[in-house]
Amino acid sequence: MKIKLSYWSANILIVIFLLSIWFLSSFGAGILFTEYLDKFQIGGFKVGFWFSQQGSIITFVLIIVLYCFLMNRLDKIYNSEGE
């Protein structure tokens, strides 16, 4: 039972960590401090504008990839301990 509890807690930690990145890249960089980021420019993009129209989407994909990786690892650890 103890192992199961820790699996769930680890799961929650991973989710909270990834959702904070999700929030920062979209609501943060794309909306709340987007004007501040606009002062910087990469190529033809103002950084805030880029986050709101492209950067956040790319970050979302990376978040899910990272999630799959972390969860598969967690599953593995959990399964070997369970045996």
Binding site: L18, W22, G30, Q53, I57, F60, I63, I64
Partner: peptide, 29 residues
């Protein structure tokens, strides 16, 4: 729509993709 809204069109871009993060992390599995 984005063409005529300009920057504010980002609500659709972020809104319609960001939901997948919620779906993947909180619901699908």
């Amino acid at each position: 729509i984005i063409s005529f809204m300009g920057r504010d069109g980002a609500v659709y871009l972020m809104g319609w993709t960001g939901g997948y993060v919620l779906l993947a992390l909180l619901l699908a599995p």
